[in-house]
Design a protein around this nucleic acid. Sequence first.
DNA 1: TTAGGGTTACAG
DNA 2: CTGTAACCCTAA
Length: 303
Amino acid sequence: MGALKQRWTSEEEAALRAGVARHGVGNWRMILNDPELSSTLRYRSNVDLKDKWRNMNVIVTSSSARDRGRTSTRRTRAAPKNNDHSLALSTVTSDVDDEIVDVNPIPIASVPVEAWNTSKSKKSHSRLDNIIMEAIKNLNEPTGSHRTTIANYIEEQYWPPSDFDHLLSAKLKDLATSGKLLKVNRKYRIAPSSPRIEGRSPKMMLLEDVQGEPLKLGSDASRTLTRSQVDAELVRMATMTAEAAAAAAAHAVAEAEAIMAEAEAAAREAEAAEGEARAAQAFAEAAVLTLKNRNSAKLMAQA
DNA sequence: TTAGGGTTACAG
DNA sequence: CTGTAACCCTAA
């Protein structure tokens, strides 16, 4: 058969990175079983994953991490010792210069109880806010997620305090009224508005925010239709007829495609540079992957 | 199934 | 020819 060397695409690499970030190094089969990743990696075997991961790391250890491994000394942030694993972000922060990459088979983060405290919330971002946003984002349900689903997700990822459910309800309500979340039919989704950073190189933007909006791939402000509007349309789809929803979905997909292309360009650009640019590339690739999956979800929603 | 050593294909 | 990436083999 076509026994030609099948070179890895950036999508596949992104999927692999995301998979490693999610399930840890060595759990290749688990990565392949991941519903989000299995579609992109469907032509790869667990051995392929292993080999590819080895190759990618060989590159890092032999070329750049040889002298000053201090490449990833950024993103310090006196935050809790809790790794955010929203996308392939943990990969970004941890394995860039390390031969022994993250060994967290299950990304459980023990969050100190104080961190959950909502009493002195700064009105904008609290720890729980970010976790909720991340949960909704990762749950990736096109029509939004129920409170119980969100709670379930968070409980799997963290160790929330016993009164967590109460806190969550309050926070969700809070976020909904403040406009950061949209509540549609008892389901919550990310609100379509998010301030954009402009006039910077894609690399910079990608490296900037980790806590706010992981999928903020800049310069959509320059486009006529922004992602915000796409999201708004998605919300409207919930109350649309099938035809109208299909049209809106097609529109949304087209838009996502443009963003994906942009992310790919950013990834390419990052590739040229060294060190932290690598992190940016990984992030961009992960973003591309996520958008792709979102596309599938959107298409299914209208079927 | 995985880790690691080895081999083949391809690019420079 | 040399280095790299994809692929293969096998012990554990």
